[in-house]
Design a binder for these strands. Structure first.
Lengths: 154, 154
DNA sequence: CTATAGTAGTTGCAACTGCAACTATCTCAT
DNA sequence: ATGAGATAGTTGCAGTTGCAACTACTATAG
């Protein structure tokens, strides 16, 4: 019953969606053109490279990458097949496994970043000055925090 | 050579991505919980409902919905099977077809909007006051305009 | 202990996606 | 007219996704 969504807010939402697809499409295209794997690979490699000991439990990784688990399983299969990560048994929990980034993985991470980083600059960052970017972050923080609770719809 | 992406801009980009997945996930969940079809259906129905005569050529629709054509073909198959749209031959171009929204389609559009609209309000709009939303739109416009030139469907 | 519930990760399946190849039609310079 | 090239939409295929069911193990209650 609350609703009463303003025209302007509605417009903002549509533009948000459009901006997202266009940017992602463009970036994926840049990566593909450089014969590099898709963004999802980057996300995994990046998360692992930042993690202590370059390794994460699979469920932690899934969380970090915002991916369902079944999805992550098969994404890791591909990365493992490409030699970019390895699975390692967890000694303290025999169900569990770590994903560990390999040297090859680090190399790929660098290669991808050289394209990805430039793309972010080219399509995104260069359009936001120092004040704007802070404002932008402030807003996005609010949006994510509100949703992060995973609250029921009440 | 230009690059030199600032930490802050990089952060903004990540938050943009995270905000997007979280919002979409949440909204899709709300729709699913109400036993309604996914957002992509809404987009098609909405575009058609706004169009003159409630119909669009398929390629116009694909453009409006930011979907590849092959994708749209099959999305429309599903919508047609569900009775929400119909295909109609184009008299002036025998290759072409229109998608037309049916009465059932309009009904579904309303049902979906009652959930979707509330969700936008609840997860997005309510976090932005009048000034902020304008600013947000201004930024998004810049981002899309910069990218828009290149996203032709080959 | 042992039963019960919970968690970690994988797998089967059906749906959805993008790309490239295909058919059919239209456009236009010759 | 006519043949080269563009455009409209569909289809085949291989890759990717989400969901639910499954195996294996852990944690907890009695």
């Amino acid at each position: 019953m609350s609703s009463k969504l303003s025209k302007t807010h509605n417009l903002a939402w549509r533009k948000f969606l459009v901006a997202h697809v266009m940017l992602i499409e463009q970036i994926e295209q840049d990566l593909a053109q450089a014969e590099l794997p898709p963004l999802s690979w980057y996300d995994v490699l990046f998360a692992l490279s930042e993690a202590p000991e370059q390794r994460l439990r699979l469920h932690e990784l899934a969380e970090a990458v915002l991916l369902s688990r079944s999805n992550l399983t098969r994404l890791l299969d591909r990365l493992e097949a490409a030699g970019l990560i390895q699975r390692e048994q967890c000694s303290s929990d025999r169900r569990g496994a770590f994903a560990v980034i390999t040297n090859e993985g680090f190399k790929m991470l660098d290669q991808m970043w050289s394209v990805y980083g430039q793309a972010i600059e080219k399509y995104f960052a260069c359009h936001l000055d120092a004040n704007e970017v802070k404002f932008f972050i402030k807003i996005l923080n609010r949006l994510t925090r509100a949703t992060s609770t995973k609250s029921e719809s009440y």
